[in-house]
Nucleic acid binder design. Structure first.
Lengths: 204, 204
DNA sequence: TACTAATTTAGTACCAGGTTATAATAGCTG
DNA sequence: CAGCTATTATAACCTGGTACTAAATTAGTA
């Protein structure tokens, strides 16, 4: 009998770490439901594992993000934004790592290059809600492992006073242009605060 | 007397906003010291200005930074391929999870939807090396958390016997089309492509 | 000047999501 | 059985608030 359930605690610790890692926004109470143990056990576990409480975790995350680049939309972006003039232009940098390439050829998958450009096109639009409507893109040459992509976005028109903006993005490696795209971005235009609300939007 | 300090409240509101903006980690209690008013006044002010409490601010910051960490895929193909007829058509499925959406709105980031379609367009081309050359895409409606995207790709032409193929991709949620794209995919056509393309389909 | 309205302060009850500490219980194990 | 670990329970307390009520202060004006 004993041997069978010899290490339920270590297993639980592992599970607990994993759960918190993949959702740092989880409360102890929610963990009790998932792990089927009392809240005291959860707390003992966190103590042993030196995992701080929810609020500390959020604070740490907030601090980390605050340090790097202070400004809002920068963190919802793929690549590092190095310059941003809202409604005008922006520049971001993105280094192709091995997780971005096809392993046999070392050539970057198109959607990563696209993602950098798309993120930048959205970020450069100064609006509460900005979503890509359409895009017309060209992959001019392949990008390889280790190369640094510099994407430059230019807002070409704010389309009347309405809901669309055109953004052109050029991505370079060194002097060479590797990608070009024309994006049409929807912007919130009116008010609309309803959905997202302010406080506890998601995950509860 | 009155005229001199005509708008102390508005001034204070401005100061308050500024203080919180430049240090979102500040508590109401600390603000009372800086602004020399009672904590109730601070709270009334925040209420009027719709500035959330410290913990909510930190949570929002944490969410923003969390989004960026969960950036893109890293995997071979985005979505699960459920049917594939090389050089003809393919179907893949991709469920929008919380790591794919803007946490504020629950709306999927465009590049994930694109990535699914792009992956499928590349996968459906039966060639050693297949890379996206150009794409013309339309996001027809926004996709939300929890929705399952079914992408269907059709190879429209194999362009002579040479280096390009046209692939059309439609993505649906239920009956509804949410995305449509026309891809031009470079294929190896015997030789390597030199500057040409971007991706290759490994592993198949 | 007296009345009125806005503003500010005070006080209380309550909440989430914990910490800390102390004790009781369960389950084996030697 | 004593002794150990693991688990659960209980209670007091903490921070940084919200929500609400009420009083006090400060203008502003009839």
């Amino acid at each position: 009998m004993p041997a069978i359930e010899r290490l339920p605690k270590r297993q639980r610790h592992q599970q607990l770490s994993k759960l918190i890692e993949e959702n740092p926004f989880i409360t102890d109470r929610e963990l009790t439901r998932l792990l089927k143990v009392s809240i005291q056990t959860i707390r003992l576990d966190r103590l042993e594992l030196a995992i701080p409480e929810l609020r500390e975790r959020l604070k740490l995350m907030a601090e980390r993000s605050y340090d790097s680049v202070r400004s809002l939309p920068l963190h919802e972006v793929i690549g590092d934004i190095v310059d941003l003039q809202l409604d005008r232009s922006g520049i971001s940098m993105f280094e192709i790592m091995h997780e971005h390439v096809f392993s046999r050829t070392g050539i970057a998958r198109g959607h990563h290059v696209f993602a950098q450009a798309n993120s930048l096109a959205v970020a450069v639009i100064d609006d509460e809600i900005a979503l890509t409507a359409t895009a017309d893109i060209r992959f001019i040459r392949s990008v390889k492992l280790g190369e640094k992509c510099i994407a430059k976005a230019y807002v070409r028109s704010i389309s009347g006073e309405k809901s669309k903006a055109k953004v052109e993005v050029f991505t370079y490696v060194g002097e060479e242009m590797v990608f070009q795209g024309n994006f049409v971005i929807y912007r919130s235009a009116g008010e609309h605060i309803g959905e997202g609300g302010i406080e506890r939007a998601d995950r509860y």
